[in-house]
Design a protein around this nucleic acid. Structure first.
Lengths: 246, 246
DNA sequence: GAGTGGTCTAGACCACCTG
DNA sequence: AGGTGGTCTAGACCACTCC
């Protein structure tokens, strides 16, 4: 690709700021395997010439990718693709339907809500969108042998999954559906213990004051923020387990 | 402090780059409590005038502090001190004292119990010892700035740490002590949400029915099972966070 | 409209590494 | 010496929020 074409391609990537588009381009080459670990990445000067943006902008893109662990930089030497990180089983994104089937139990889900909504502060922050954007929202109850085991509240970036509201989530979980559209490359979990609301208690058939495990999971596909899920489990019916070695 | 003095103070901070010194100054004011959560931080323009550096430099400092979670910024509104987060990594075995010190807070612990006991079914299974073996047991409350944040119930294999009962665990955490004796090579976490007992509620100063996060952690050193810890956190005062890439 | 943060530029100087 | 990343500046334009 000649420099002007490359610049054009970057410009077509959407309304993202330039540094973000440069990040996306570089991350893409790394994640799709075109640039392999320990490969040398073009220098800032080269990218300035190739892409036609100022060095500060290129520098910001590469600096942030370094902070995110995709690149390694050495002053006086150059910029290189980092070795991929190890992953932990505790953090595996598991599809709840598969998890239940693996226990040889039956999985069923009820879709309680499937709507367009306006992102509030928490949701917009989690999806990295501006406050008041239109996003998709689903609320689904998952059952294991007819015992409710999870309430899945999911907020989805409509740019990634424009047909989200037309899906039948009793047949396919949002997790699987989204993974087909945009294979996830990155995720973040926050786990905490909370009390359930009255509505949630009813849906999960909880004993009074029964504690719940709340897992807030944000997922990315390449540089795009795909969805934000709040998974609520009855404390008595679910645990998270993880194993690691050093 | 007048602007010239402030700039001087920053210059004396050492050979760090300017943006890092600005970060340190701002972080310092937040962590020492001079700027409290939700306080407004001077705008970029104000800092440019007060400190005499260019706006790009100030911007980088504030942007990185935002990424680190110390600040929250809203376009058109301003920059504010973020609510402190109490969270730890899902992946790493962290020593709670270090974790608290990393937040620039004070750590203190009370030893409530330090005894020899007979392993019950759960404990013997966790330590892979026979039912009825003699094991060591400690119960310690950890405080962050005098707020109780964790009850650590730990069961230890006496073969690995014969002097366990003679230690002063207000000076060194069991975690560190054991790690020195037998560096851990393997671990397992089980995370769940539970209610606290009456005694635990009292120790942690919990509101009625406040849910808690329970982390049961087994650790190994080489082939030897070292200890089994049950870490109980108030749900409102602690989260677990994990990040991964594939 | 005034103030805020978000971004971008064109140039500059420096420390560092390698030939 | 020449290329690399690391930093800094002075100015600019924009989108956003609040009054």
């Amino acid at each position: 690709m000649t420099p002007p074409e490359r610049k054009l391609a970057l410009k077509q990537l959407g309304p993202l700021p330039i540094y973000a588009r440069v990040k996306a381009m570089v991350a893409d080459k790394i994640l799709c395997g075109e640039w392999r670990p320990n490969d040398r990445v073009p220098s800032e000067t080269e990218l300035v010439q190739q892409l036609g943006f100022s060095r500060m902008t290129i520098n910001r893109a590469l600096r942030e990718l370094t902070a995110e662990g995709l690149l390694v930089r050495m002053q006086g030497v150059g910029t290189f693709v980092a070795e991929p990180k190890r992953q932990s089983s505790l953090l595996e994104i598991q599809n709840i339907a598969d998890e239940i089937l693996a226990r040889h139990h039956q999985h069923r889900s009820d879709v309680m809500l499937l709507e367009e909504c306006i992102a509030d502060r928490e949701q917009s922050a989690a999806l990295n969108m501006s406050l008041g954007s239109t996003i998709f929202h689903s609320t689904i109850i998952h059952y294991e042998n007819d015992v409710p085991i999870q309430i899945e509240d999911r907020y989805v970036n409509p740019a990634i999954a424009p047909e989200y509201l037309q899906q039948d989530f009793t047949l396919i979980t949002p997790n699987i559906y989204l993974n087909r559209l945009a294979p996830l490359t990155e995720g973040e979990h926050i786990v905490e213990a909370v009390s359930a609301s009255t509505q949630q208690s009813k849906w999960l058939r909880l004993a009074p004051h029964e504690p719940c495990l709340l897992i807030c999971r944000r997922t990315w596909s390449k540089q795009h923020n795909v969805s934000y899920a709040r998974l609520l489990y009855p404390g008595s019916r679910h645990r998270l387990k993880g194993h690691f070695m050093s």
